[in-house]
Design a protein around this nucleic acid. Structure first.
Lengths: 191, 191
DNA sequence: TACAATTGATTGACCGATCAGTATATAATG
DNA sequence: CATTATATACTGATCGGTCAATCAATTGTA
């Protein structure tokens, strides 16, 4: 086995949490998927909750890296990067094991009444970081209202993520991209 | 007690499933919330799975009724109704017990690998019905491309639902509304 | 009006299965 | 030999679901 045990556990857990849900995935399933034994898992993580937290933290790093790498390698000018965002999403949605956003799913599954919940905190931070990244590009693109455009792009990103999952709309990323294009072309005109 | 027992159970289950999640909500919590005993629940529903299905079916009816009623009572012309959609969302988001969309949450929680899963089927049907309703209005509004506008509105609806939950953005519905307004004003112009 | 019979809803005790987590013993590694 | 990781068996708690007894209300009969 090449990969460190801890990494194997994290990858197995990530796959199952995404595919089957956080609550529905038991310890048994994780150790089976990672091909390790029970105590090995508890040697690396002190509880399932902590495993969930580490999975989400790692997912945040991995996802942001993949996302930003795609955007910056597929487009050079900030304006084109704003559109390339949706090519990155399209690339993601085409994964055979696309099961939605780990953070949106976590927000759906963990009770929002618990403000102490770490998973929810990480989910919020993830979306915040994503928004900050887009705002940075939007400002570099020198669009009319970078703040507003960023909000609109974020809305469309979230919409595309959900639509790709539930509507089984394989074009949601493309639809969102065209919409952003249309918004950037329009000279504004709120009623 | 005025309300029928079955209805009380459905309301209690709906509240808890939404707030705490489908898996995390146990039978014990439901019968406690509904102030009934265990067998009373199983007398009305043969299993938790069936209860979930009935909750979702009822939620679909109730949600669509509230949504369409709001839209149609707050705007008369189809064009204005397309914008009133987001006022309806805003109204929904302001519920003190807004915990996201029951169907999006269900899709997040139940394994998408199981194509037989009833909950996922209902979630898909719900979104399909919602889209059909919007398309009907869009056609009546005689916009340039009603099909495309409908897709865009659906993307923005889903985005607003998620953003209201995770970003804790209380303006997501308003942002989405302004975006639709901007899209309707723009004379198109894809690159 | 009286009273028993029937029926349907409700209850608390209980079932096996499975949950997250642990104790202990063994095997591998330096 | 010392240390670390692994495997097996087990814990108490909780899961969804069931059973048999009981309660309440209604009905039939006189």
């Amino acid at each position: 086995m090449k990969k460190p045990t801890k990494e194997r556990i994290l990858e197995a857990a990530t796959k199952l949490f995404l595919r089957d849900g956080y609550h529905a995935t038991g310890i048994e399933a994780i150790i089976s998927e990672a091909a390790i034994s029970r105590m090995t898992l508890y040697n690396h993580f002190k509880s399932k909750d902590e495993l969930i937290i580490e999975v989400l933290n790692k997912r945040h790093r991995d996802w942001m890296y993949r996302f930003t790498s795609f955007v910056e390698s597929h487009a050079k000018s900030p304006k084109k990067q704003l559109l390339a965002i949706f090519d990155a999403l399209q690339d993601w949605f085409e994964d055979e094991d696309y099961y939605g956003c780990a953070f949106v799913n976590a927000a759906a599954e963990f009770s929002l009444r618990d403000p102490e919940n770490q998973a929810l905190r990480i989910a919020g931070e993830h979306k915040h970081d994503l928004e900050a990244y887009i705002l940075k590009i939007a400002k570099a693109a020198e669009v009319e209202d970078s703040q507003k455009l960023t909000q609109q792009i974020c809305l469309l990103i979230e919409g595309a993520i959900t639509s790709a999952l539930i509507y089984e709309n394989s074009n949601s990323a493309i639809d969102a991209k065209e919409t952003v294009q249309q918004l950037m072309n329009s000279k504004m005109g709120v009623a």
